[in-house]
Design a protein around this nucleic acid. Structure first.
Lengths: 204, 204, 204, 204
DNA sequence: GATGAATGAGCGTTCATTCAT
DNA sequence: AATGAATGAACGCTCATTCAT
């Protein structure tokens, strides 16, 4: 039968997408489960039919997206390209994710990744996995004699993510201009400056 | 030198210091006012005798410390020293603050500076002021022909703080080894790498 | 006649009726929300499911009843009967309300109508509307030459309600015998005495 | 040295007078003990030095004034003057009290006399004593054949006070114009109308 | 007498979660 | 699947009263 108008008859999906909007708008703590249901246009109880808890909604949102980043990072790492391009690929993936769905990325960065006291703690393993790829890229670069040996790769990884997340925060909260050109400039700047900072100098 | 510690007769001070410990241990949201009172060894109501609200306690903690950072940044900025030393001074101030009172810095970084949805929003002006000093240092460096002109100073400032706060987070949550030597290494690495990344290369 | 009582399946109604009993027994300020819930035999939170606040419960109680008085007053005013009968109708309506549901009327008189500092202030407009009808009746009586012209109608209205509410108070607090005969006697006495006091005397 | 400027060096008195102002302004429930102390310009604890409790302050305010009314009523009752003049004397005393110190009378009427659930209950005996004098006057009037026999004297007393207090309320809350002429008119109207309503008619 | 710090019981409200239908 | 009524623990805040000085 026809009724083809609404493709998203999938209420579970509707709830997830409503959650993105509401979490982005009000923050996780400030949103009540009823807000999600209202935004999704479904009954209160249905949220609990599909999800164990409010936290489970957030977790699914995070995991779904973060696993893409992990997969992309892993794929990049495996490719036979210069370290710089790998880092650029990761930065690009994150920034493109933001361009593509800023609300979701806002939620992930603000409520999970940088919320070390709440979801950050819960999802620490997955978060570290992303850091580790960066660290491995840097370590490889050092092994190749490309990067200075005295910088700790783990340390660089923290730095890399700290910087990028801070930029996203800046865009999210209007501290920095958020246009597509800015996003691309930022990507170049981060990678360029970081790599220049890491590279070994001169023949000496 | 002896640093004459006030014998905690001052209950207001005792409350503030108890709050640092409890906020650091449990996070702001998870600490009840009674936790603070208990930790301070005072009656529940006394917290409200000295502070308008739980939030006011947090605010005082943040403001007290952050104003020191602001003052130090301003002083550094005024001094007639190379840009690199200024940045090093700021990084050093933050890291020393952490060495000196890790719990307080944990609270400030985790609950305010990186909590863009709650206290971060409230204290945005003061937070930005700290960023601005870094941006000005970078801009000066550019004007002097020291730093590459194509990097946006505001952008570098975000980066700088994003990176340092991420490092603090790493220490706080045990993602990175947290010893005094590590702190000092980190300081050197951050500033060294950032400056190298920013510097213009010679004609050669 | 049967007066088909709703079998208190309606929990919202149960809460309202419990509130009447508890407010009447303890007074508004002295009743905790949990008292209402307990009296109604429902969970604490259900009160807040149906009402925004404790005050909202009181407001609904008052408004529901007072609007009946207003409607009755208006209807009486419109009818083509002597002023005295109109006043008698109003007095009768109030007193019958008390006979019918003394607890509710106690709450309304004690906690709202005579509580000028709390609910009285909030509901002043509705309260005044009731006074105004009496004033209009008196003014009409004066225009017809029935009542002495030198008495201010607004003034009489205040008096009328002040007196009647005082009588209700007296019954409520056991200062006066409260039997059905007393109620009817009181009604007669108030209206009789007031009207005699207002009437113009013959030339004789 | 002289310091004769402030006659009210009596801090106890200052507290009482401050309480009148604050109770009148905010109502008893809404005033905190600290409000009284602040208004009086004395230390918090001093209120408790002179008074057992917040309630005790209110009680003293009420008792002090109400005993004057009682004394005046008794005196009036004893005098060899017509009933009407006695009633007029009582109404006059109350209204003059209001003219003389509206804030105090506001507090007494609003917070005690008409607050049957709180102070009204506590001071019921004294309040009734005032009513009783009126009742006795009416009863005497009936015995003299002046007043209709079918009205219950207690009932008239309730009415009398209910009406007068309602008028005071009206003035206090701006429902009626409150000028000195109005006060005097009101006094005349109340007594005139009440007595006309009570008087026996007819040739006899 | 005078001060104001210290105490702690009390209460309104919120909201995640469960459950009956 | 879908609904929304029902539950109750939890917590921030107020403020009368006490107490040490």
């Amino acid at each position: 039968m026809t009724e083809a108008r609404v493709p998203a008859v999938d209420k579970r999906r509707a709830i997830l997408e409503a959650a993105i909007r509401v979490f982005a708008r009000q923050g996780y703590h400030a949103t009540r489960v009823s807000d999600i249901a209202d935004e999704a246009g479904v009954a209160y109880g249905l949220v609990y039919h599909y999800f164990r808890s409010k936290e489970a909604v957030m977790t699914e949102l995070f995991t779904e997206r973060w696993s893409l980043l992990l997969a992309a990072s892993d794929a990049l790492y495996e490719r036979d390209i210069p370290a710089r391009e790998k880092l650029d690929g990761i930065a690009g993936f994150i920034i493109d994710s933001y361009k593509h769905d800023p609300e979701l990325m806002k939620v992930i960065i603000i409520e999970v990744t940088r919320a070390a006291n709440s979801f950050g703690a819960t999802h620490l393993p997955e978060i570290r996995r992303a850091y580790d790829v960066v660290a491995k890229i840097v370590a490889d670069g050092q092994r190749e004699g490309l990067y200075r040996a005295e910088v700790d790769p783990d340390f660089v990884a923290m730095w890399f993510y700290g910087a990028i997340e801070q930029l996203l925060s800046g865009w999210v909260f209007g501290l920095m201009p958020a246009t597509d050109e800015e996003f691309d400039r930022a990507r170049v700047m981060v990678v360029e400056t970081l790599c220049l900072g890491l590279e070994r100098r001169g023949p000496g």
